[in-house]
Design a protein around this nucleic acid. Structure first.
Lengths: 138, 138
DNA sequence: CAATAGATTAGAATGATTTTAAAGAAGAAA
DNA sequence: TTTCTTCTTTAAAATCATTCTAATCTATTG
C-alpha cells in the first residue's frame, strides 16, 4: 500500500467531515489552503495559485469552494473593502490588521487585542461575532 | 432680504469649507444628509430619497458626491459586506452594530465600547483607524 | 458496471461602482 | 452683463467581482 492509495489523507479527512465530496478540485484547493497555516486569499489569488500549481480549476469553482468551506466553518470571510472578499483559513478567535496601501491582511492573535464593555445589542437580537479591523498605512 | 437670498446657509457653508462648489445637486444632497443627524445610507438609498424629495440627480452624481464628502472628511465609509457600501454622516469616534438579517447599521457611541491593548502595528506603519463591527442577528 | 446524485465548467447574467465624453452651470475677469 | 474658464452633471458604456445557467463530467452506491 503506497502513498497513492491514501492521497493527502489529511485534507481528504477534512472534506469528508465537512460532508463535501473529495473531488480533485476540492482536494487540490484544500491542500493549498490548509497545508500551510493561516492564509488570507481572494478568489482571484487562489485561482492564480492553483493554476500555477498545475491544478485546473475554473474561477466559478473557486468561488463555490470558498463559499462551501466558509459555510462548513473551515474558513472565515473577512470584509475590509467594498468590492473584494478575503477568506481566512484561521477560524480561531482573532482580529486583523489591514494594510490600506498594499491590501494585505495580517492576523492579530485573539489575546493581543480585546473589546471592553461590549454594549447590549438591541432587544430581540444577539451578538453573532465582533470583528475588529485595525487599518494601517505607511 | 428674505430667506430665498440665503438658501440653506448652513450646508452652503459646509460645502464652501470643503472646497466644493455649492451646486444644486450637492446642496440638495447635503441637506438630506446633514440636516438630520447620524445617517447611514447606500448610494441607491440616497438616490431614491433624493428623487422622492423632488431633487433630480443621477446615480453617478450620488456616487461622486458621496466620495467627495467622504474625501473631505464630512462622512465615513463603513464596510460591512462585500459588494455594498454604507456611508455614515457621523464622523466622530464610534463603532457599529450590523444587523445581518436586515442589513441595517446602528451606531455604538465611542464610549460604549473600546479596545484594550491595541497591538503595535508592523514596523514602518501607523494605525489609521480601528473599526469595530458587532454583528447581530435575531 | 450502471444509475444517480452531486460537481465542474464556459459563458452569460447580475449588481454595484466607475469612466467617458458631451452638455451644462458656477466663478472670475473685463 | 458678457465672456471665458473651470468644474459639474449626466446618460450611457465600461468594468469588476461574483453568481447563475445549463450542459457535461465524476464520485458514490447498488
Amino acid at each position: 500500500m503506497n502513498s497513492s492509495n491514501r492521497p493527502f489523507s489529511q485534507v481528504h479527512d477534512i472534506l469528508r467531515k465537512a460532508g463535501l465530496r473529495p473531488t480533485r478540485q476540492r482536494l487540490g484547493l484544500a491542500r493549498l489552503l490548509f497545508e500551510n497555516d493561516d492564509r488570507h486569499v481572494t478568489a482571484e489569488q487562489l485561482h492564480t495559485e492553483a493554476t500555477g500549481a498545475n491544478l485546473r480549476v475554473s474561477l466559478a469553482t473557486i468561488y463555490n469552494t470558498l463559499n462551501q468551506f466558509t459555510g462548513a466553518g473551515l474558513m472565515r470571510e473577512v470584509v475590509v473593502e467594498p468590492g473584494r472578499s478575503y477568506f481566512d483559513t484561521n477560524t480561531t478567535d482573532h482580529h486583523h490588521f489591514f494594510h490600506e496601501d498594499t491590501g494585505r491582511l495580517l492576523d492579530i492573535p485573539g489575546d493581543a487585542i480585546s473589546v471592553s464593555k461590549v454594549p447590549e445589542p438591541p432587544t430581540g437580537t444577539h451578538v453573532e461575532r465582533v470583528d475588529i479591523i485595525v487599518r494601517i498605512r505607511e
